[in-house]
């Protein structure tokens, strides 16, 4: 996979530019991390507040490298059977029932239990072979011949044991299945782990990964993002809404609006045919930005001062645009 795309990942700048063409505006840090992950063949652990595009980065990487995206959502209680592989119990059972008669034939003429068992042994582990193996995301990623992008989403939601279980995969790109042996990756996948920091991850896991922290973008970058995601929106409104959201982030809220919320808001305002932010529009659409009633109540009383603040800022930008 890496060899196939060596020109695509020749430098961080190439990655940055191509991602932009795909509609993902990334900072230098992000481009460097993707570059290093591809070159060093190391997993990336992405942390950051919700809604800054952690999962999206994995999707775009898969799209860019034209690889399959295999996604594994983590949750409490996730175990090997759901993440790595499971035996097809039903199929095993069905086959044993169907093969009962055959078994009779095989065993006919055998004297005593010992001989029967030794005859059975000659057939090997038929029921525990590849045909009966149900691959789950991790195994799929390893067995994908063209290489894949494996997204392990919200690893912090999984239990600690699961984290330990991932270590072998992350460092050697192989897993051990007791009945079959060690499965090694045909082509090493690119592994992207995301975390919302609900719990501190283990040092062992962190050590094996590149660490990337994606913060809220600065206003300039956010404007670019909006410009790409919502191309029809006019410049003034874009300026206003980005600076408004940035002011909101400075308030002490339960959940501050992230980039994805800004995009939603921009789309909504476009749909509503709003040309300039005013008090009523903000008040009516605030629920797109804020997800807690407490937050909405806090902000509602602050809308006027906030608007004034951003209006002071925007005239400065206007001469530049004119």
């Amino acid at each position: 996979m890496i060899i196939k795309h060596s020109d695509k990942i020749a430098s961080p700048n190439i990655i940055k530019d191509s991602f932009q063409k795909l509609g993902y505006i990334c900072s230098d840090d992000i481009a460097t991390s993707i570059y290093l992950a591809c070159q060093l063949q190391k997993p990336i652990l992405i942390e950051g507040p919700p809604g800054v595009g952690k999962t999206e980065l994995a999707k775009k990487t898969a799209q860019y490298l034209s690889a399959e995206l295999i996604r594994m959502q983590c949750y409490e209680g996730l175990d090997e059977a759901k993440a790595l592989y499971e035996w097809k119990y039903g199929k095993q059972l069905l086959y044993t029932q169907l093969l009962k008669d055959q078994l009779g034939d095989v065993l006919s003429g055998a004297k005593g239990l010992d001989e029967s068992v030794s005859r059975l042994h000659q057939f090997g582990d038929i029921f525990y072979s590849e045909e009966f193996l149900e691959p789950r995301p991790l195994l799929q990623a390893l067995r994908n011949e063209d290489g894949a992008v494996l997204l392990i989403d919200e690893i912090d939601k999984a239990d600690q044991e699961f984290e330990a279980f991932l270590l072998e995969l992350l460092s050697d790109y192989q897993v051990s299945i007791p009945e079959i042996g060690t499965v090694k990756a045909i082509t090493k996948p690119i592994v992207i782990l995301t975390s919302n920091n609900t719990r501190e991850l283990g040092d062992a896991l962190k050590r094996r990964c590149l660490h990337l922290y994606i913060p809220f973008p600065d206003p300039k970058l956010e404007q670019e993002i909006i410009a790409v995601q919502v191309p029809d929106i006019n410049n003034d409104l874009r300026n206003q809404l980005v600076s408004f959201v940035n002011e909101l982030r400075a308030l002490s809220l339960k959940k501050v609006p992230a980039v994805s919320e800004t995009i939603d808001w921009a789309r909504a305002l476009l749909l509503l045919n709003v040309h300039s932010l005013d008090h009523d529009w903000i008040k009516n659409t605030l629920n797109l930005l804020l997800k807690f009633q407490d937050d909405i109540e806090v902000v509602e009383s602050e809308i006027y001062p906030l608007l004034k603040k951003i209006q002071q800022k925007t005239p400065k930008q206007k001469p530049g645009q004119a």
Binding site: D28, D29, T32, S33, L36, E47, K206, C209, H211, L212
Partner: peptide, 15 residues
């Protein structure tokens, strides 16, 4: 800048 980013990713693993 890119050196800083690269080293940061490999050496510093929390905020």
């Amino acid at each position: 800048t890119s050196l800083k980013a690269g080293l940061g990713m490999t050496l510093a693993k929390s905020l």
